[in-house]
Design a protein around this nucleic acid. Structure first.
Lengths: 192, 192
DNA sequence: ACCTGAACACCGTTCAAGT
DNA sequence: ACCTGAACACCGTTCAAGT
């Protein structure tokens, strides 16, 4: 059931993930869905939790504290990117009681082993999670035929000198942009 | 038209912001909506842009570079919090060509006046925007009767020692949590 | 220019009734 | 225990036709 929903999500995206299409894929009538699951929101919550679970499954090699924090955040990003609209799902339906809490606990734990005081560790965890989901959300937003690379259609840049300069200098790819933001956050944690 | 949509959003939330309810509020039939606007997505994009515009309207007093960056991010947070589901709207429908670009340009500009090199300034801008929308998204998520303060219903904390400790120590309020994350990012920008 | 009437192709959810 | 049939109350969108 949830497996079928997951593959339907991956193939069709969140907007097309409908109870009726799910039923059809399972060879059932719509109503049958509601024997397995209370409602659609519960279904989506389970999907979101599963995605966060994939991030959690990633092993953590021996490395510096900041690298461990960054690796964990990158695992979350990977897990969300691995599923269509993954970030929207996690941001919108991931619910306490589940893997999200475990992920938060892991992040705080990493910071604490480096003797980071609890309040700062909590804020760092919060910042990393908000940043990561915010970043991937934006990343997965441009959906259909966004011209993959190069300066695409001339958007209005008059009055936006810095963006113009940035466009001329070349926009960095998503990977390095994400890592750079991550570094800004984690550096602040141990520097304190 | 967009004004009516905005107040409907504020009163009813994004899920209840429906073309039919909007028409009813305007004393029209549904079809009439589509004379004013191409489709619902365009309507939502205009709302999102308007919200970002409110953030842009906030004046920037004379202060340190990091304070200016933080003030700008806080203005965006305020603007999103000022409207029901503001973050979901901005994250999901804000589109280039509009106030989002102006906001990004402003952030990069602030960093650049402090002689931050362009690539770092761009990454800082990216990080601040992703963090802020991610944070407020989460903030506006718990919708209905989330027990406002205090440790609410016992969620399962076995195996989550750090979260348990955090809960015992008291969860910091959203304001200071947001500021703390902001500081982590901005500190990294000038420290470099 | 601006709107109505009326339809089309969808949704999520419920619930008696079947097996 | 698991599913069907059939309905209910909604959606967004289109488009001829009216004024």
């Amino acid at each position: 059931m949830i497996d079928a929903a997951m593959t339907l999500l991956d193939e069709a995206g969140l907007d097309e993930l409908t109870t009726r299409k799910l039923a059809e894929r399972l060879g059932l009538r719509v109503g049958a869905i509601y024997w397995h699951v209370k409602n659609k929101d519960e279904l989506l919550a389970e999907l979101a939790d599963r995605i966060v679970g994939e991030a959690l499954a990633e092993p953590l090699p021996d490395m510096s504290t900041t690298d461990q924090l960054e690796t964990t955040a990158m695992a979350l990003r990977r897990a969300m990117l691995d599923h269509r609209d993954g970030a929207r799902l996690v941001a919108g339906y991931a619910v306490p009681g589940s893997n999200s809490l475990a992920l938060a606990d892991r992040l705080i734990g990493i910071a604490r082993t480096a003797e980071v005081p609890l309040p700062l560790a909590a804020h760092a965890c919060d910042a990393l999670l908000s940043y990561t989901t915010g970043f991937v959300l934006q990343e997965q937003q441009q959906p259909p035929g966004a011209t993959a690379s190069g300066a695409d259609e001339a958007l209005e840049l008059s009055g936006l000198p810095h963006l113009a300069e940035l466009l001329a200098a070349g926009i960095p790819d998503r990977e390095t942009a994400f890592s750079a933001g991550l570094r800004l956050i984690t550096a602040g944690v141990i520097a304190k």
